[in-house]
Nucleic acid binder design. Sequence first.
DNA 1: TTGTACGCGTTATCAC
DNA 2: GTGATAACGCGTACAA
Lengths: 329, 329
Amino acid sequence: MPRTTMEDVAREAGVSRALVSLAYRNAFGVSEATRRHILEVGERLGYVHNRVAAQLATRGSSALGVFLQDLHNDLFAGLYDGIREVAEEHGRELVLAIGSRDEDRDAASLTTLQGTRVAAIVAAGLRLPDAEALTHSARTPLVAVARRIPGVDSAYSDNLVGARLATEHLLALGHRDVVFFANPPADGYRDRGRGYEAAMAGAGLRPRTVVTSYAREEVAAEAARLFDAVDPPTAVFAHNDQAALGVLDLLHARGLTPGADVSVVGYDNSSISSAPGTALTTIDLHGRDLGRAGARMAIARTSDPDAAPALEVSDPTLVVRRTTGPPPR
Amino acid sequence: MPRTTMEDVAREAGVSRALVSLAYRNAFGVSEATRRHILEVGERLGYVHNRVAAQLATRGSSALGVFLQDLHNDLFAGLYDGIREVAEEHGRELVLAIGSRDEDRDAASLTTLQGTRVAAIVAAGLRLPDAEALTHSARTPLVAVARRIPGVDSAYSDNLVGARLATEHLLALGHRDVVFFANPPADGYRDRGRGYEAAMAGAGLRPRTVVTSYAREEVAAEAARLFDAVDPPTAVFAHNDQAALGVLDLLHARGLTPGADVSVVGYDNSSISSAPGTALTTIDLHGRDLGRAGARMAIARTSDPDAAPALEVSDPTLVVRRTTGPPPR
DNA sequence: TTGTACGCGTTATCAC
DNA sequence: GTGATAACGCGTACAA
């Protein structure tokens, strides 16, 4: 049984297909009575406006593609909120793609979005190398959110500043041995490490970096190795809250109290970090605002494809909770 | 500057459009050399396969639509993981729609998905009334995940069992005054309240229900009213972890210790609940498995549209952590 | 491998 | 101003 088509509605309503089309889009040139009649017939026949055909006819849509790295990370929910708000304000539809564990598939996600002929793509947390991202942006306008990609519109938070804020907070408390739990090295995500190193160097201290993954369990395992070694640090700065949680897991398993025995700082100010029992000191990068900025840039780009790449940088802020305190003596 | 089309690639490669089409779909009937040549030309011209046109030509795709109620709730990330796994195993694309604050828009999300002519929709956490959901399922096959909708394929966890488990856990610890923080009343989400009431009645106790929202802050405000009243309870069972977190927020603000002064049980076993400092006792409904089941049902439905509505029920399990303990004496 | 008739709306161009 | 006609967008499928 074939689907109900616009032709069916037109025939049943005794009008032309063109008129049905206009009626369904609230366009001018249809008398109110006819419009109501057409929609009523459509409803009765169970017709659903076919966006696929519509898009083909209009050669691409005004919709925005959205890429989100990871649904398990609350940060991306905040970014999405911001993107959606702006999209709604401008009457833009959203088409989503979610990243996978393995980052190779980020490229496939972008290609899929491009295949749906969205007007532009807002990508939050893309792990693709700069060069590849640039290639993609040549086909469909791309806006990098929460990351800076040279030559591509970017709305990001200054990670150098944030990492510095976190590290200096620990140093001000009196810590001397602060270890940084870094994300896997990738284009666009090195500034947190740099900010940390700069802050440590500024205090005349030797930086110590442990490279981990994004998975809480693996971070905990890495932390176990660190704290079972001969020279455990008194403080840890983790590249994001998820990782910080892995560190907290380990501390708890060892019977160590965060904020007293060991200080921990995260990054992102995701909702976990504000749970009263966790009370993780962290860096807030104001995800919703970043999302809004990214969406705005994407929309601007669709009306001016040839403008120079735009940049919007914001400064993150330190949120002090209870996982940081002076080192034990 | 018009986009590169398949025709352009065909002309440049010196072959027919049909052959280009075959080459891009890895179909049979194209010599390896030709295929490579075609793809190479396409790459050079910056051609991206147009899924919109492709879908129209094939009258709808085999893609699955996915509706997720709320990205801020970790549960839906787990459900999505399960859905994606199965979709990948079957080579199905996924098209996403995310719910809004106001539930009226759930219907709009479904209509949008139907407009993209997906083969079926897997809806996790739909807040639509049963009747409306049924109407939608008549147009495009619908699978309800984490909720039972009569007459619609449903993969759900037995909330009666879960709520009973939670309440009886508290009763076994010796609590007599257990308050239930209920979600706003809606079709498909009443069983947790029923399970709670059944367990209370079974122990000869009077149930007390407070209706709240899904927002952590509002729950905290509601909890404040409850604990500032003359007869605060010794235990709270919240309809989900987010709400439980709101209760924990309030307890912390009042200087009360969860598990000692007041016991709290959540629902969902989302990742917040397992943070070491939070250690929320909760009910695990095994989201990933539910997602897998839902996706499987959706795929089965596409090959047998007229089979009777399928049902898959699973039993949730209690996860005891540290927010529950005997009542203070 | 190719020619070509679809699929299903949209958008001029016209007629009343 | 209302409504109809027909060409068009871009792949896919099937016969040749």
